[in-house]
Write a protein that binds this DNA or RNA. Structure first.
Length: 913
RNA sequence: GCCCGGAUGGCGGAACUGGUAGACGCGCUGGACUCAAAAUCCAGUGGUGGCAACACCGUGGGGGUUCGAUUCCCUUUCCGGGCACCA
């Protein structure tokens, strides 16, 4: 009988569906295990071979855990709101709701063909009102909460109102920029509008004016992580800074906890490091510098207060509010020109020319509180308004940028650190001894920092301060295809919708082109009295993992019972591209919900694995400029050529199918070719897999040719999941051969070969060795070595002609997570009823692994000389005796006694002479 | 510039805590079957020398620790990723 994968796979996929094999319910009698994939954005081009890499890995692990007796939650859904569908709609006139639904259908078909064990009854789609009702609900909870620094958690805003009414805000320590004190009497006298405006400063979801990343092309603002190199991540359009009224989420309140709790997570070091850098904690001091000629103080932040004796000038960000006040009449002109220049520069230019020194003198002088000298105040774009206080004390002796600035403007430089044995050290290194620094002289940097901060605090001219680079997240988007924000306005005051009014449905619209002035599409609707911006793409993905636990609940976002049972994600698999976006926001929402008592775990994802990207190998043809002639790869150097992407399906082993190429596009029909050895060879480049690069390999084709089981195993066989690698189909035959070889242990051309004969010791050894290795390797997600182990096992069983039921039945179960279809088929062939999924995973028996003797490699001075068979756990003295008795060893020792004999049981014997 | 990774045959990659480097697969070479091809099966396959047994070299380069290093330490080159005027 032949191995007919397409029949087998169809049969089992159908049966799993009919029998609800993958459905899972809370079951307190079993331990839970939650395996999650990052749900995909359903793009119009469907899945390519790169997408399933992580899904296959998670499916193997989920199935494995099921075999181990766990109750496994392994769901899938779609991140269905977002820019691409809306952009596509604007170009084609097709409504995003329609195209999204189509795309999801296609994705589900493709996923189904790969035999994943998803419980589709738990599917979520972020654009479904039944889902986004609860996204809106969480937003309302954020709106109705503030962050109490005293208790270090989010609390109800109603509680805050009570405190205000009772004692004003003087005893309140909240996460806010608001610093105006008021008493209980003042609070009670404020108008409704004034009260609401004050409360807005405390809410975790709040409206504020701020510089935002505005993308005119997309007609919307973007979060920091959606901007790369001054361009939008989606589409690559220019981004400019713009001051706008926006919704924000106060993620900065959680900066310290988001940082600290990273230590509790089983994530890769690089992933944690990326989050640490993004949060960007630094310790330093806030210091006030007097401006004697004005009645104001300049607040600066520094991480190196010890260098204050070397501060010879100050620099403000150009947009700093004090610039207007302190600029002297004679410098007004210069400053205005400089501000003009700064304005004219795009974010991109500014980033590209960071080395360029620019700035202007305001004419104002500040007083260095420690040297007592008057120092000039400059403005320059190298100081950013958004970080610290937007002003610095410049220490040109120790800061590279300050030094460049001082040199350019001819300002004094005073050495304050004697670097000693670290002459190349910079300010970050914090090494050396203080000089020219009054009472700090002779101190090590670390001690000096302590001493100066104490002195600053004693004099009341500043204080210790921790600063984060993390900014509050902009939450509104001037776009259509997203969750409406459940806020309405009365007298221009924003109020939350009542929870009973949720969901606030996204109204049907046909024309939702963005306008360049920032007017959101919903504002065009006459009877829309709600907030006109919608939520960003990451809103729905910040909590979807919780909804899977209780997807159909229309009373709560998540019931207590479901939450208590499933708790958190045990294994999360997805790409690195979400390091500082989704993964940070999701942790933030989880912590918020934890504070408010809705979930019981402060972190959502215990273990995170980042699958690598599968790149495409793009193929190129070389057109001779100004002609219809194409020259083969190795001959192209003699010509002036333009490389053009060619569809990978037209190329086999770098050879172009010329006829197919001519038919491929009408403009190619008269193409001529300069061949080498009668063939046209294409060039290759490894790039990201994408439609535009014509290098997309579709999994459907591979599955049609080899079947899903081979496809799954081949993707795993390519290498470690974490590694990125280019797709190539060359090796897939090897995996396919393995499945057929396994099949041939069960069937030859005509009959079923399996017998009930007892297995030999030798066969059991092969089996149990395999069980142990597979179990160990699955646990550390080393699936590529699992496949190799299976191959070795089947090769050995084939050599032994072992078609014995006792051996094969364990092997089939062992293989089931990897190749579920063929495993089910063979399990049934062995006379078993029911799905193999329910069968316990085989345990290995130490008895069959334990060797009594071991062939020891014997080395002399670390060089392998011979091998000698010895009982495994022999005493050192016995070993010595045995080894030295050997003729070969005697020869190597040349009659001299050895200095030492090193014996590691089960590993090696080494003789030192 | 800073911070993380990584470098092993012709190729993808194995070697879990220092212990026989190159598992497994691809490719290649030779052979069997065949009129022939495909498919399948068998054997070989890191390099150099040798008819051979065997010897020497070998995990990007240099150095170190160790009886023993792909693995640990220092240094250097190259590649990938992230951040980037963050005070």
């Amino acid at each position: 009988m032949e191995y007919k994968f397409s029949d087998i796979e169809k049969k089992w996929q159908q049966r799993w569906e009919e029998q609800n094999t993958c459905k899972v319910e809370s079951d307190p009698s079993k331990p839970k295990y939650y395996v999650l994939d990052m749900f995909p954005y359903p793009s119009g081009s469907g899945l390519h071979v790169g997408h399933p890499l992580g899904y296959i890995a998670s499916d193997i692990f989920a199935r494995y855990k099921k075999h181990c007796g766990c109750n496994v939650l392994h769901p899938m859904g779609f991140d269905a709101f977002g820019l691409p569908a809306e952009q596509y709609a604007i170009q084609t006139g097709r409504h995003p709701a329609v195209t999204t639904a189509e795309n999801i259908k296609r994705f589900k078909e493709q996923l189904g063909a790969m035999g994943f064990s998803y419980d589709w009854s738990r599917e979520v789609q972020t654009c479904d009102p039944k889902y986004y009702k609860w996204t809106q609900w969480i937003f309302l909870q954020l709106f109705k909460s503030w962050y109490n620094k005293k208790t270090d958690r989010a609390e109800s805003i109603d509680g805050l109102v009570k405190i205000f009414a009772r004692e004003g805000n003087v005893n309140v320590d909240a996460a806010t920029d608001f610093d105006t004190a008021f008493s209980e009497d003042e609070w009670n006298d404020f108008s409704e509008k004034q009260q609401q405006e004050i409360l807005m400063n405390y809410r975790l979801a709040y409206l504020s004016y701020a510089e935002v990343n505005w993308c005119p092309e997309l007609g919307t603002v973007l979060a920091n992580d959606e901007v790369k190199d001054g361009r939008s991540e989606r589409g690559g359009y220019p981004v400019v800074k713009k001051k706008m009224r926006q919704w924000f989420l106060r993620i900065t309140a959680y900066a310290e906890r988001l940082l600290k709790d990273l230590d509790t997570l089983a994530w890769s070091d690089s992933m944690k490091e990326m989050q640490r850098n993004w949060i960007g904690r630094s310790e330093g001091a806030l210091v006030f510098f007097d401006l004697p000629d004005y009645n104001v103080q300049l607040e600066i932040y520094t991480t190196r207060p010890d260098t204050i004796f070397g501060a010879t000038f100050m620099v403000l960000a150009p947009e700093h509010p004090l610039v207007e006040i302190i600029t002297t009449p004679e410098h007004r002109q210069q400053v205005a020109e400089y501000l003009q220049y700064v304005q004219s520069r795009s974010e991109r230019e500014r980033q590209a020319e960071v080395k360029k020194v620019t700035g202007a003198f305001t004419g104002a002088l500040a007083l260095n509180p420690f040297t007592g000298r008057k120092i000039p105040v400059f403005i320059s774009e190298y100081v950013l308004l958004g970080y610290g206080t937007g002003a610095i004390m410049a220490v040109p002796s120790d800061d590279e940028r300050d030094h460049a600035f001082a040199t350019h403007f001819n300002l004094p430089i005073i050495d304050v650190i004697d670097k000693g044995m670290y002459p190349g050290a910079g300010r970050e290194d914090r090494v050396g001894k203080l000089i020219n620094s009054g009472f700090l002289d002779g101190m090590e940097v670390a001690d000096a920092i302590e001493a100066i901060i104490n002195e600053i605090e004693r004099r009341g001219i500043g204080r210790r301060m921790v600063q984060y680079r993390l900014r509050d997240a902009i939450f509104g988007r001037q776009r259509y295809w997203g969750e409406p924000i459940p806020i309405y306005y009365k007298d221009d005051i924003p109020y939350p919708l009542d929870e009973s009014e949720l969901p606030l449905l996204l109204p049907q619209m046909d024309d939702f082109k963005p306008s360049p002035d920032g007017e959101p599409p919903l504002a065009k609707l006459k009877n829309w009295n709600y907030e006109p911006t919608t939520m960003p793409g990451w809103a729905g993905s910040s909590w979807y993992f919780l909804r899977y636990m209780d997807p159909h609940n229309d009373k709560e976002f998540l019931s207590k019972e479901a939450e208590q049972y499933w708790q958190d994600v045990d294994l999360y698999i997805g790409g690195t591209e979400h390091a500082v976006g989704h993964l940070l926001y999701a942790r933030f929402w989880q912590k918020f919900l934890y504070d408010r008592g809705y979930v019981s775990k402060p972190e959502p994802f215990k273990r995170l694995v980042n699958q690598g990207m599968i790149q495409g190998s793009s193929k190129f043809v070389y057109r001779i400029s100004g002609s219809e002639k194409y020259v083969s790869f190795n001959l192209k150097d003699g010509y002036e050529v333009t490389p053009l992407h060619v569809d990978v399906s037209l190329v086999k082993n770098d050879v172009l199918d010329i006829e197919a190429f001519k038919k491929w596009r009408p403009e190619n029909k008269d193409a001529e070719f300069i061949l080498e050895d009668g063939k046209y060879l294409c060039g290759t480049e490894i790039e990201k897999m994408s439609k535009s690069r014509l290098n997309v390999v579709n999994p459907d084709e591979i599955i049609a040719q080899y079947g899903a089981d081979t496809f799954r195993m081949y993707e795993m066989f390519l290498g470690p999941i974490e590694q990125s690698k280019p797709w190539n189909t060359h090796g897939i035959d090897g995996v396919f051969k393995f499945v057929r070889k396994l099949w041939r242990l069960f069937y030859d051309e005509s009959k079923f070969l399996v017998t009930d004969a007892p297995a030999t010791e030798r066969e059991l050894k092969v089996l149990h060795k395999t069980i142990k290795k597979i179990r160990d390797d699955i646990e550390r997600l080393s699936f590529n070595t699992c496949i190799s182990t299976f191959m070795v096992c089947v090769n050995e069983l084939t050599d032994l002609k072992c078609s014995k039921k006792t051996v094969l039945k364990d092997l089939v179960v062992l293989l089931a997570p990897f190749a579920p279809h063929v495993a089910e088929e063979l399990w049934e062939a062995l006379g078993n009823k029911g799905s193999v999924t329910a069968v316990p995973y085989p345990e290995y028996n130490q008895k069959y692994l334990a060797e009594t003797t071991f062939e020891y490699p014997v080395s002399v001075n670390g060089k392998l000389r011979t091998k000698i068979e010895l009982p495994l756990d022999l005493e050192q003295s016995k070993v010595q005796e045995e080894v030295l008795a050997s003729d070969v060893v005697k020869k190597w020792l040349e009659g001299k006694p050895p200095k030492k004999v090193i014996y590691v049981p089960g590993k090696i014997i080494n003789i030192v002479v």
